[in-house]
Nucleic acid binder design. Structure first.
Lengths: 141, 141
DNA sequence: TAACTATATGATACATAGTGTCAATAACAG
DNA sequence: CTGTTATTGACACTATGTATCATATAGTTA
């Protein structure tokens, strides 16, 4: 049981829990990710941690995505961005103008997948869903 | 009104309707796409039309996606594949083993988006959804 | 049907998002 | 403090495109 509302993004602890070594480059990448409020690209993250190798940044991102601590999203053109995971399983709204990410879990989403499971030829092994929005802040400008 | 059941994939006609020139390279790319039964990558298509420039293949794919005649899908890792569009707006099931693509339109999907529209901070301007399956043929092997 | 012109082509270089290799380095266990 | 093994950073390479530009051609018009 996790305490509701007490969402931490202790990315380094996530890596430690999975048995990875706590290195200086990983700490710097994790710290930088925790500072990002909105969705960010891997290349942007590389720039935010000068001195850390590009490959290390990508490797760290990959570990965090595999751990479920980070979500990989696709922009409308398919370009990838990353966003901190705030809840277990969820989907995202992404503002196409400012990149602000929102999470949502909707009972109708779950209902839809249950309904779909009966129709498809085979077993559902995963899914992807992103909802693109023009957020109220951007719409106001 | 379209005639239900009479789904054609006249990709060349789609380009003509949009005012593009009917060139030999475009005909070859369009013909090759119409032969693909499952989702395919752009590079695979390039190989299937030897002699046609890679840039031309990508340009033709882009025109067809913009026309709605071709769908760009994302595999679980985000890698793009393309699939002929059979109906107006729909979503896809993709077998993660063989790449077979199925279309679906589910009333609960529409209901879900209507429900979501009330919750999000802004206006929904688009979405993306793919359902990954292990199809019955692959599961049998 | 010949000529004209805008569009399209193909070669090439470049951009973005990663992954594989490998020698050097550093974390952590003992 | 030392040894082992994971990790790093540099670099090369792959995949998926896009930009540029000289050349070629589709479709129009005389």
């Amino acid at each position: 049981m996790t305490t509701p509302g007490a969402q931490r993004h202790d990315l380094i602890a996530t890596l430690e829990d999975r048995g990875f070594r706590l290195t200086a480059p990983r700490r710097r990448v994790a710290d930088s990710i925790e500072e990002q409020r909105d969705a960010f690209t891997a290349e942007y993250l590389c720039e935010s941690v000068p001195g850390v190798g590009r490959a290390t940044v990508y490797r760290t991102i990959k570990l965090l995505v595999e751990s479920g601590a980070l979500c990989k999203l696709a922009m409308p053109d398919g370009a990838p961005k990353y966003s901190l995971a705030r809840v277990g399983h969820h989907h995202h709204t992404v503002c196409v103008r400012c990149g602000k990410v929102g999470d949502f879990r909707d009972s109708t989403v779950e209902r839809m997948f249950r309904s779909l499971a009966k129709e498809v030829d085979g077993e559902i092994v995963g899914h992807r869903m992103e909802v693109y929005i023009d957020c109220s802040d951007c719409a106001a400008t």
